[in-house]
Amino acid sequence: MTNPILNFDNVTFAIDGIEVLSDVSFSAQSHESICVVGPNGGGKSTLLKLALGLLEPSRGTITVLGTDPIKARRKVGYMPQYLQYDQRFPVSVLDVALMGRLSSHRFGFYSKQDKVITMQALDEMGVANLAKRHFGALSGGQRQRVLIARALACEPELLLLDEPTANVDPSVENQFVEILHQLAAKITVVTVTHDLGFVSQLVDRVICVNRFVKIHPTSEITGEIIQDIYGGDLKMVRHDHCCSEQGHAHDRLF
């Protein structure tokens, strides 16, 4: 086994003595695509913030790209779930995406190369034509794509996406699945989502977070497991989905 890209080893995180995550252990290998699912308040976003070094674990160790999360940041791309910003903030799409090219040293402006890399990232997300537009004037789906492009402009080895399909209509969601599929071929992608249908089509493994963590290969997810995570009856809708090479069990329910 090669060195994992992301590794959680018995990580516990508590706020004011209340454990949000308990004894979490998992790892993500290179070029793996992982989905983190779970109910609201289950600790999904906390998991990402720990991986980014924005939060410190109470116990346990986290390694990212073989080092500690803060040192690894430069090679990690992140798309936050909420962007608290003023709709009228005078900033263009290109300005926002260029922030992926920020560095700690330079005291000045972005280079030509920064702009080329950023435009490529925007192009990859299909929003290069919006580069000059006012960021606040975009639709929800366009904005998500720009934020993913910003994360890609970091040229990451690990991409962390927090709810990329929030506020996005179903047709756009399908495009997202396609885009993430392509990305996963190149880098390691960890996606947080509450959208289980999205999961099944996309990833190698699912990490279910509700304080404790359970890991499943996608094909193993059944109604019972979902019930177990979310606690309670859920209405399940079968989606059409692509089969993995190994095929899939027909009792798969979403």
């Binding site: 980014l52 924005l54 940041r73 430069r74 990690v76 992140y78 936050p80 962007l83 910003y85 903030f89 900033v91 300005d95 926002v96 260029l98 922030m99 992926g100 920020l102 560095s103 700690s104 005291f107 000045g108 402006f109 972005y110 910003r150 970091c154």
Partner: peptide, 23 residues
């Protein structure tokens, strides 16, 4: 003027700027 790109990022999305190593 010299700090324009950093200031813009810090004003727009401080958390992201921090993640890129900006003080």
């Amino acid at each position: 003027i010299l700090s324009y790109s950093k200031m813009l990022a810090v004003c727009f999305d401080e958390e992201f700027a921090r993640l890129r190593g900006v003080h």
